Amino acid sequence: MRLVQVAQHADDLQRAAGFYGSLLGADATAVFDPPGLLFFDLDGVRLLLDRNAPSAVLYLQVDDVAAALERLGGRAEIVAPPHVIFTHEDDTLGPARHDEWQAFVKDSEGNTVGLVSFRPVAT
């Protein structure tokens, strides 16, 4: 089994396209309006921004949390700044001997998005 699609609420597809385009560094793959659907490709998983979808918390892996926040500029309200939430001793939930960094922002539509990156533990 594999995850195929995740849906997230978006009132304004154009505004959401700008926000997620900046965050992901990619253009939308498809827009169907009406009925109000916007798609991005996340390495083979479709991110659907939909006027009728409920809000969800998305956790998106980025190369560097701080750099992702810089790319967003003033487009996002920072809910929680970058911080280490966990050090992975083994590879059960992430790469062994790496710190997991996270930051949380509100997207253009008011949804919470977690940004996640992994850095080798400093020795």
Rank of each mutant, 00 (worst) to 15 (best):
F19W: 07
F19A: 06
F19G: 11
Y20W: 07
Y20P: 01
Y20M: 02
Y20E: 04
G21S: 06
G21L: 12
S22Q: 08
S22Y: 05
S22D: 07
L23A: 02
L23R: 08
L23V: 01
L23I: 04
L23Q: 06
L23E: 02
L23K: 03
L24Y: 06
L24G: 13
G25Q: 08
G25H: 08
G25I: 02
G25P: 02
G25F: 03
A26R: 05
D27L: 06
D27E: 10
D27G: 02
A28G: 01
A28P: 01
T29Q: 09
T29W: 09
T29L: 06
T29D: 08
T29H: 07
A30E: 03
A30W: 02
A30Y: 02
A30K: 02
V31H: 12
V31E: 14
D33F: 10
D33R: 13
D33G: 13
D33T: 13
D33S: 13
D33K: 13
D33E: 14
D33Y: 12
P34V: 12
P34H: 10
P34T: 10
P35Q: 15
P35V: 14
G36Y: 04
G36F: 06
L37A: 03
L37R: 05
L37S: 00
L37I: 09
L37P: 00
L38S: 00
F39I: 03
F39A: 03
F39T: 01
F39L: 11
F39V: 03
F39N: 01
F40T: 04
F40Y: 07
F40L: 05
D41S: 03
D41P: 02
D41F: 03
L42M: 05
L42W: 04
L42K: 11
L42F: 04
L42C: 02
L42Y: 03
D43H: 14
D43C: 14
D43K: 13
D43W: 09
D43V: 12
D43P: 14
G44F: 12
G44L: 11
G44V: 08
G44N: 11
V45K: 05
R46A: 09
R46W: 04
R46S: 07
L47H: 07
L47K: 09
L47P: 04
L48S: 01
L48T: 08
L48P: 05
L49Y: 00
L49R: 00
D50E: 12
D50L: 13
D50S: 14
R51D: 00
N52C: 02
N52P: 00
N52F: 00
A53E: 01
A53M: 06
A53V: 06
P54C: 15
P54W: 14
P54I: 15
P54Q: 15
P54N: 15
S55N: 04
S55H: 05
S55K: 13
S55G: 02
S55R: 12
S55W: 10
A56M: 11
A56S: 13
A56N: 12
A56I: 14
V57P: 07
V57N: 09
V57E: 11
V57A: 06
V57W: 14
L58Y: 10
L58I: 08
L60S: 03
L60Q: 07
Q61E: 15
Q61K: 15
V62N: 09
D64Y: 08
V65L: 13
V65C: 13
A66S: 15
A66F: 15
A66Y: 15
A67Q: 12
A67E: 09
A67I: 03
A68N: 09
A68H: 05
A68L: 06
